[in-house]
Structure formats: structure tokens, C-alpha cells
């Protein structure tokens, strides 16, 4: 028990001293997580809007596949992307393996379904009269979409926050596609795993505290936005 207390106190001192290695790991984590979340929003929000608004063949099948992908294990995604970007594979010439881009690709696959499905759900929950009202006031499709997305903004923000929370805390993709290279692809979760393997708990505990703080902050945001969603 004392080792945990000692590690905790040392971790606090490490954070207070703004340790360069610690900051570097946190920066890499935040960079890849923000990047993948940004890309997932760019793809997932319009996709969720399209799924809720337009009728097309196999729409239900697409929704079922997306729902299934919500439960996709990160190691499966890691393996899948590895098969495409490893040296001798289709995209091997792009030298993506063990880069931050590889982590971002894998994380996008992980959270695009989250953003899409949650956006779809948020838009389906808002009143259908918003669309009709925008149309009768003369709005074009883009202006109508703007009204609908604005009305669903709290639900969509909750989707984005949930997606960020998922990628900041995942380890499988970062480890398999990033390779845990110090100063380059070492994220908070992969660094914690490594420090645990080494039996060095101070940095691991410090990173754990930061990760938990981020998770707490994300949850506070999530509850705030969910509280604002229409009944």
C-alpha cells in the first residue's frame, strides 16, 4: 500500500515539475486524439445527418453495420489496419506503420461509427417540425441542415465528447500501429503499459492521474451537454 502512496506523491511532484518526458507523452496523446476526433467529426456528422435525412437502398443495413462497429475491439482495428499498411501490403509504400498517422487512421475507424450513430440518434430525437419550418421560411438544403444541426447541437457535441474520450483512453491501436516509440508515437496509455512492464510506477501513476482528470473533464462535459438535450 505504501508503494502506491509513494508513487502517488512522486507522481504529483513529477507533474508539478512539468517533467519534459511527461509533457511530451501528453502532447502526443492529445495531438493524435484531437486529430482523429476532428477527422471523425468531419466524416461522421455529415454521415449521421445523411442517414437521418435521406432514404436510400440498404440504409437499415448500413445503420446495423455502424451499430455493430460500436463494439469493435481496438486490437481488431489494429490488426486490420496493420494488414493494409505493413511494409509488404497495399499501402506499404507510404511508410505509415509506426507513425502518428497510422494511430490516427486506426482511431478514426474506431470513432467514426460513434460520431455517426450518435449524430443520427441526436437528429432523430429533435422535432421534425424544425425541418418543415425552415423549408416554409424558404430555406435551401444547406440552411435547413444548419437549422437541424443547430437544434441537435447538444446531442452532437455529446457524440464528439464521447468519441474523444474513447480515443484518448484506447491502447490497442496506439500500441499495434504506433509502436510506442518515445517522443514520436508514445501516448499516455502505451507509456503507462511500458512503465508497468518496467516496474516504474511513478510516471505510470502520473499519466494515470492526468488520464483520469481528462476522463473526468470529458464526463462533466458529456453530462452538461446531455442535460441540455431536449426530452
Amino acid at each position: 500500500m505504501s508503494f502506491l502512496v509513494d508513487s502517488f506523491l512522486s507522481a504529483i511532484r513529477l507533474m508539478a515539475s512539468l517533467d519534459a518526458a511527461l509533457i511530451e507523452i501528453v502532447a502526443v496523446s492529445l495531438k493524435v486524439s484531437f486529430s482523429s476526433t476532428g477527422i471523425a467529426c468531419f466524416v461522421g456528422i455529415p454521415a449521421g445527418f445523411a442517414l437521418s435525412t435521406y432514404e436510400f437502398a440498404f440504409k437499415r443495413s448500413v445503420i446495423t453495420i455502424l451499430n455493430t462497429m460500436l463494439a469493435l475491439p481496438t486490437v481488431v482495428i489494429g490488426l486490420f489496419v496493420y494488414a493494409f499498411i505493413s511494409r509488404n501490403s497495399v499501402f506499404g509504400t507510404y511508410d505509415l506503420l509506426y507513425t502518428q498517422q497510422a494511430i490516427i487512421i486506426g482511431q478514426c475507424i474506431l470513432i467514426i461509427p460513434i460520431v455517426t450513430v450518435f449524430t443520427l440518434s441526436a437528429i432523430n430525437r429533435i422535432d421534425k417540425r424544425y425541418r418543415k419550418t425552415a423549408l416554409t421560411l424558404g430555406a435551401n438544403p444547406i440552411q435547413t441542415a444548419g437549422i437541424i444541426l443547430t437544434e441537435a447541437r447538444f446531442g452532437i457535441t455529446a457524440a464528439v465528447v464521447a468519441a474523444f474520450g474513447r480515443v484518448i483512453s484506447e491502447i490497442g491501436i496506439s500500441m499495434m500501429l504506433g509502436g510506442n516509440i518515445r517522443g514520436f508515437t508514445r501516448t499516455m496509455t502505451t507509456a503507462m503499459a511500458l512503465e508497468y512492464d518496467k516496474g516504474e510506477f511513478v510516471l505510470a501513476v502520473a499519466l494515470g492521474i492526468i488520464l483520469l482528470s481528462i476522463s473526468l473533464f470529458i464526463n462533466i462535459l458529456l453530462h452538461y451537454f446531455q442535460g441540455k438535450m431536449p426530452e
Binding site: 419550418t133 423549408l135 443547430t150
Partner: peptide, 19 residues
């Protein structure tokens, strides 16, 4: 869309945008 700019419908239970 062009014609809708000449005609406006107020629903039985109108909804106002959240602003």
C-alpha cells in the same frame, strides 16, 4: 424552393428555433 418564398405556413403547433 423559389415558390416557398412567396408562401408561408404557420403550423397548428408551431415550433420556434432554440434561440
Amino acid at each position: 424552393r423559389q415558390l416557398r418564398k412567396s408562401v408561408t405556413l404557420v403550423d397548428q403547433h408551431p415550433i420556434l428555433f432554440s434561440t
